[in-house]
Design a protein around this nucleic acid. Structure first.
Lengths: 339, 339
DNA sequence: TCTTATTTCGAAACCGGTTTCGAACTATAT
DNA sequence: ATATAGTTCGAAACCGGTTTCGAAATAAGA
């Protein structure tokens, strides 16, 4: 491993000057710069990020806090799409991404501890369970954070307009003639889930539709399985709805499966609207009508905000609400006879 | 930021002794240890990983090299499933995961350079294009690598038995009575893709079936779109096959869509076998019969091998071939009249 | 030619840890 | 009381960089 000292020795200049070359200081003669650069190339020199971080206190590393209660981690398509777009702008600005976990090496430690130990410059957090005390601990710290899909006054936040999404979905179903509209929630205890329920309820009220208790089924996770179970529950109702607004595409997939098993055809016998617009929703049959979140924008915008906040921690906290839109495909049909 | 020097000052012991406490040296009196631990707690001490790495030359960081030519990055379900399981064992052993990219900060740099700069202890690589010269550069280096879905004598390798998978698929279709079996390849230029084609060809030969040129369609990427295009090409054939073995589930989704648009019912008019067993393949209609790779095993095994290799770089290179299995679902039907 | 201003460079301290090796101190054996 | 063994601790060098500030060298101005 060659160091700036090796280069200094070889060229006859001091380590100081060598360091200056790699940091684009102006007080070094151009010819000197060339000599040093040349020597660096010959010796195969790579700057040591750890040594640099030690003095500068900047690691050029962003922590990714990404945990789902369901435990499937990176596999969730919505989250991974966001992170992918986040990564692209972060890398372009010179940052590397590092996963933050608790319990590293089998030792109970917590997110904040690991962030401190690793010296990350900032953290982007996407959790399904924001009640985690270890997350709170991180929020309370001085580490710049941008948190997605959640609302808090302690950090920059970024989330889709879940509320509006629900309105769009229900109003669309209404416009097709549906009056008995049920809702499969993604968990009232999650931020997005509760917003979506609220949006559903408001929409129903606005449209003068009765909001029955039994028409709202809470499913614990955004998984296919729980969507299946929730739909089964709805199908057992004596007064079956003609349409179901489902708070997530994965849930919707499970719901569609349940309906199919019960012999219901979609959209003929039952209309379904999802939420998220995951890639596959357009390829299933029938293609899923859903509310699209702009994952690419969410990721890139989050990176912009976080990096700004790293550069200037005194920045006022931003709270960005991203627009959603209805994507009409084939999983809904109009109701002719409104019983 | 409190350091071991702060703790030393507060307790009256030397930085050496403080350091020893955190490194579990035995030559420190138990009472001393308690005093120092107590002081550390009070001062809110976190060890500085960068400083530690600087002297020990070990960063407890594993680089993740994960690029797809299609550019969708982490979103690919197969790859992200593998990484997720990799991450779990790596974290349990005390490592953090860091994404390695080239062109950091807009500067053309390459994978090796970034690995060297960041001082990662090892790298797990999953690429779709293993011809990348920057990847070769990394392979030629002294950094421990484990590469997935590829074969090379320069690193530890790990891949599913693609060849066997093809045999299973074709033999299964044969057992259902199919004789005209086509193949949509995932790209003859990828390692897995070529193995799958070879397996297909061997199976056909073994079963005494004619391997027509036109029955093998090469699709550039493992995307839904290219699966769609490839299937269209097959459906344009005058002598249409009764079954298609598709080299990837995503491709299969596109292929099914194409067939459906052409008015063909699956499995009645056309049988399809996929490859990968992505989560969604069981939820589409008809549920996809496919060849399953053991992604969890691949990830955890890869982590085991890499970490062993980090601990002892002189280890002989391992090349692990993981078993695959046929998962029968609803996308294939038996052929009664073999024309 | 002598100031003065501008370039160009380097000594030295510092960042926060680790590790070797010897010294001092305590306990045990003779 | 003395020799020996075992325990406990710390001085100092080192890891590979950055940065301040002053000095030397060179160029410009009078």
């Amino acid at each position: 491993m060659t160091t700036i000292y090796d280069i200094a020795k070889k060229t006859g200049y001091s380590p100081t000057t060598v360091s200056k070359v790699f940091n684009n200081y102006t007080d070094v003669k151009d010819q000197t710069r060339q000599t040093i650069l040349q020597a660096a190339k010959e010796l195969g020199y790579w700057p040591n990020a750890h040594a640099r971080t030690l003095t500068t206190k900047k690691s050029w590393t962003i922590g990714v806090l990404f945990v789902e209660s369901s435990g499937i981690g990176m596999q969730h398509p919505f989250f991974s799409a966001v992170i992918e777009s986040f990564k692209q702008v972060a890398v372009a600005k010179g940052y590397a991404l590092m996963f933050i976990s608790k319990d590293v090496g089998g030792k109970q430690s917590g997110y904040l501890e690991n962030c401190k130990i690793r010296g990350v410059d900032g953290v982007v957090v996407i959790l399904s369970d924001y009640e985690d005390p270890y997350f709170k601990e991180l929020l309370d710290s001085d580490i710049p954070c941008v948190v997605l899909d959640y609302e808090t006054s302690q950090a920059h936040t970024l989330y889709s307009d879940n509320f509006e999404g629900s309105l769009l979905a229900v109003e669309y179903l209404y416009s097709l003639g549906h009056r008995k509209i049920a809702h499969i929630s993604g968990g009232i205890n999650t931020f997005a889930g509760s917003k979506r329920v609220q949006g559903y309820e408001l929409a129903m009220t606005r449209l003068n539709l009765e909001t029955k208790e039994s028409y709202i089924v809470d499913s614990a996770y955004y998984s296919i399985e729980s969507g299946y179970a929730a739909m089964m529950q709805i199908l057992d109702l004596q007064e079956r709805p003609t349409a179901v607004f489902v708070a997530g595409d994965h849930l919707a997939l499970g719901a569609m499966r349940a309906a199919r098993e019960r012999g219901l055809r979609i959209p003929n016998d039952l209309s379904i609207v999802g939420f998220d617009n995951i890639e596959l929703s357009q390829y299933i049959t029938p293609a899923l009508t859903t509310i699209a979140q702009d994952t690419a924008l969410m990721g890139s915008k989050a990176a912009d905000i976080l990096i700004q906040s790293i550069d200037d921690p005194s920045q006022v906290l931003e709270s960005v609400v991203l627009p959603v839109r209805l994507i009409v495909r084939d999983s809904c049909s109009s109701v002719t006879n409104t019983t």
